[in-house]
Design a binder for these strands. Sequence first.
DNA 1: GTCTATATTTTGATAGAC
DNA 2: GTCTATCAAAATATAGAC
Lengths: 200, 200
Amino acid sequence: MKHVNYYLAASMKKLSRKQEIINVASKLFKEKGYSAVTMRDIAKSMGIKAASLYNHINSKQEILTYIIISLAEEFTQGMSSIKLSNKNSIEKLKQIVSLHINITINNTNGMASLNNDWMHLKDQKDYYLTLRVNYENSFRNIINKGIKKKEIINLNPDIMLFSILSTLRSLYLWIPKKEDLDPNELATSLSNVLLNGINR
Amino acid sequence: MKHVNYYLAASMKKLSRKQEIINVASKLFKEKGYSAVTMRDIAKSMGIKAASLYNHINSKQEILTYIIISLAEEFTQGMSSIKLSNKNSIEKLKQIVSLHINITINNTNGMASLNNDWMHLKDQKDYYLTLRVNYENSFRNIINKGIKKKEIINLNPDIMLFSILSTLRSLYLWIPKKEDLDPNELATSLSNVLLNGINR
DNA sequence: GTCTATATTTTGATAGAC
DNA sequence: GTCTATCAAAATATAGAC
């Protein structure tokens, strides 16, 4: 009988060369932005020449598209689950906080491109913008329903949406600085601050 | 006696060509980021040729430096006033909210560069980072003093700092979409949401 | 899968005429 | 203050050898 440590097998699984390129590119895009990163930069970070990259990817644009669209679809899927869940609005907001924390911890570098480089998308830019608008609308719906059911204070919902979403979208800037990070603990604390404020 | 409409005189005052370049560049930097904007783009937006820009500015870098450093110094000065004011921590936080709103309304485009393009600074990058760290430390001090004086809940101050500052730093994305905007009203509503949360 | 060599375009910036 | 002309460097991407 063969023994395999599946955890190790999974974590050590050799990344496809394409995925390796995307990971390296994500890191550089986070540091300098898509436009300031050259194919030579990416290649150098991998210890190869720029021309070699083109054996695995078709263009720089393809790298950006992959990073952004897969993240945007992850958020869409997450929001879709939350909408279906039978929870009140406050609980749904807590789920949204957790969704952002989990995705950001999993792909901190990619989140930088999602936030800052989407305007450099070409073919898929309209698709991205649709996903984004739909996500914001679902978020706004949850807030509006919460106001109607008197679970959320009756203030301008756009200000609440903007305030919470800005914080969640900025998580990628802050999470990597926290070495010892328990996602659940962060979700609890952050939800508390966002929902209940800091006033005593 | 000569009559002058000083309001008109001020608002119609012909901008120096240099300031005009900086304004046009700020707008383009906000749309695509510093690296993706070319000197030809800036020139085209002004209806002149790229070479002509160099009669008024020395380099593309100089434009970016001006945009970012003048804003960073504005924030430093604002924070310095707030520190001197004899108010409790909650009132100081409200003043910080107003500071961000006022500066952002006044220079929405520039705020994009301050947030997203500071890493492309050359000579003045260290100076910028010093101002930034000092600003964040002053902010954190106000929160910490508020916790000690039991004006602010006793939670992780970094989470509160991050949450509030992320929202304030994202104002530039949101303010231009609000046509009918009363800065004082926004300050009141936003302070309310940030300080007291949305939970009912 | 990686390399060298290279094509093509675009970039920031300068020189000098008007 | 703006123009045309131009330079030198840097960019994405391809072709073809190994």
